[in-house]
Design a protein around this nucleic acid. Structure first.
Length: 204
DNA sequence: CCACGGATTGGCT
DNA sequence: GCCAATCCGTGGA
């Protein structure tokens, strides 16, 4: 019998663990979206953790509202919010139910579906190779290229439409840790996890 | 009801 | 490096 090596889909058990454990392990994993016959895939290279219990930068800080209610699900759901009126950003909910913890996916390294990502992002064909670096090097760009919007908020990440596959870091890759980007509250938490020197990071 | 500002991006100085 | 775009959730009157 022919065997094919397929990276396994991350399980509910993976996501329901502690926020920072999951966040530390997400870089290197592969975000996948199926859209009919199309497929998008990218290795996660940068994430940030948000914890509504102690973190004033988290949308869930201050309790459940219509906007953030998905963050209070148990781990394994996608939380999508609109940023600055024009961009979407996607997050992975973690922990047990009503924790209000989630991880922002800030940057990916495109693997598959690049042609369609370019169409989604720029509305045209690729003009030069440098544009590839601009496809998924920021949270708004990731959603734009993958065609993810608010209608995808609440999707179960153990389903088939959007999920994360359990790929590994490459041998030479090292995880970096820093403060989070673009926030004005609770800036002191070192909750940004990224693959050092990766060319798709939102900031070098 | 109204005013404020944000887990961003890209264009212009 | 600076700043406008653009919208809706949130909080105060």
């Amino acid at each position: 019998m022919k065997t094919t090596v397929v990276a396994k889909k991350l399980t509910k058990k993976f996501y329901k663990r502690d926020l920072l454990k999951v966040a530390r392990e997400l870089p290197g994993k592969t975000l996948i979206r199926r859209e009919g016959k199309y497929i998008y895939a990218g290795r996660i290279v940068e994430v940030e953790a948000y914890d509504g219990e102690i973190d004033r930068a988290a949308h869930s800080f201050g309790g459940k509202t219509r906007r953030n209610e998905v963050m209070f699900n148990e781990g394994g759901y996608l939380y999508v919010y609109q940023s600055y009126g024009m961009h979407f950003c996607c997050n992975v909910v973690t922990g047990v139910k009503n924790k209000g913890t989630a991880i922002l996916i800030r940057a990916l390294e495109p693997i598959e579906g690049v042609k369609r990502m370019i169409q989604n992002k720029f509305g045209r064909e690729l003009l030069n190779e440098k544009e590839k670096l601009n496809l998924t090097s920021g949270p708004g760009k990731v959603c734009k290229s993958f065609g993810i919007n608010k209608t995808h908020s609440g999707i179960d990440l153990t389903g088939d439409e959007i999920f994360i596959a359990n790929s590994q870091l490459k041998k030479n890759e090292v995880i970096g840790i820093s403060r989070r980007i673009g926030i004005t509250k609770s800036v002191q938490f070192p909750w940004r996890f990224y693959i050092k020197n990766n060319q798709y990071l939102s900031r070098k």
